[in-house]
Design a protein around this nucleic acid. Structure first.
Lengths: 227, 227
DNA sequence: CCCACTTTGTGAGCTTGTGCACAAGCGCGG
DNA sequence: CCGCGCTTGTGCACAAGCTCACAAAGTGGG
């Protein structure tokens, strides 16, 4: 195979494999089979093999995949071999939680700037970084070579902030505000809506309650990603 | 159409339409076309029509959809007409942010219980609710008829907490811990991994940087959901 | 060297999802 | 009452993703 175009669905699972492999490496295991990895990542073995085959042939038939090597290849593919300075805009409860979130540093995402429109928050230090005003956004993005932005503002400010980020040169944005944000085609945008996830759960929960008398069969309760 | 089985992809978009329609209603508009709704929800019109057709024929040809009616139908389908008491386990930065998150109440998700294993956190009040110990979990789930659980603990405790929630009778779980959690088939599980989203962005960002010299064409930068 | 066993890599068929294009249906003006 | 313009609902073709099943390729024992 070795196609240079990696399916979107595969890309969304690579971080999952990456995380599972790191755990595996810590427990001292040197090689994993697709079945091992599948169990640890919560998917099935065939999918693991097909996904990994898109990166190239890094496995050994009859043996499995060498953990260290595979971690390295996935890291390289995901661009985790380099440092990614991140800017967080909006330091309410969620923004502060994100600023303090351990999981970011561990994956090479360093919180390099914090921005909040509220004057009262300005100058405060959160997670070792000083909060600055909206007017500082463009400057710090340039100075600190920030390519990734996180929007953790209320819905009403999200589009405005996104525009500022794009204008400042940020090309990847993760939006936590519960609203639709549009960006130019050459900017990547992903969104996480916490309430939306609960609503999806709510759907299947209601559905289950409804059909509990009709002795048909259980709802399928499909798998789901934050992605 | 009017099939009683709603496609998974459609279910994942219903909350999006719901949110867009609420905003539309606030601005005083009485009816929307699929095109209007599509713009507000950030999808295309054909998809909106096909999605809504799964719920039944609630539109009027030549006119569009009546906003209030459609909100009601989607709410009913999502099970948002009832109150969903939610339990949050783990009150670190993220757990506290979730407990204080406004967007939950607004959609009928009421924070009914807070649990943390740390003795020092016990008894503290967060967002108007008292933090209790792990030993209280089973009792409060039963007493307060809680059906939805949120795991915001470190990765190491997530599976244990999930087991406790399931044992207590919780049938829908939203997992924020960066690890794979397994539950019985009759329990719904969705996951949100904050670092994973950044890693996916990182992939497309690196890819873009790589191919900037090869004047081929821009990376597709696919749409993405936190779902 | 050969054989039995293990595990990868992948072709093929199937399921799900998407987008186009258009007929059917509704309202309105004359 | 008729025709025109608009919008829904949907059939269809295509794209993407998933799973199965198996050949290819490697290991290790005798």
């Amino acid at each position: 195979m070795s196609d240079r175009r990696i399916p979107e669905a595969t890309v969304a699972r690579l971080p999952l494999y990456h995380r599972a492999l790191l755990e595996t490496a810590e427990s001292g295991v040197g090689t994993v089979s697709s079945q091992d990895l599948a169990t640890r990542a919560g998917v099935n073995a065939a999918k693991v093999r097909k996904d990994l085959s898109h990166l190239g042939s890094y496995g050994t038939r009859g043996v499995g995949y060498e953990v260290d090597h595979l971690v390295h290849e996935i890291s390289r593919e995901l661009g985790l071999t380099q440092d990614w300075p991140v800017i967080i805009v909006g330091l309410g409860n969620l923004g502060q939680a994100l600023a303090n979130y351990r999981g970011f540093d561990a994956r090479g995402f360093r919180v390099a700037a914090l921005i909040d429109a509220d004057e009262k928050k300005r100058g405060r230090r959160v997670a070792g970084t000083t909060v600055e005003g909206l007017d500082a956004l463009e400057r710090v993005v340039a100075e600190r070579e920030i390519a990734v932005g996180i929007i953790a503002t209320p819905a009403g400010s999200a589009q405005e902030v996104a525009d500022l980020l794009v204008a400042a040169g940020v090309r990847s944005i993760l939006n936590f505000a519960p609203t639709v944000v549009t960006v130019p085609d050459d900017v990547s945008l992903r969104k996480v809506d916490l309430a939306m996830e609960l609503q999806i759960l709510s759907f299947y929960q209601s559905r289950r309650a409804d059909s509990s008398d009709t002795a048909d069969r259980d709802a399928p309760v499909p798998e789901a990603t934050g992605a």
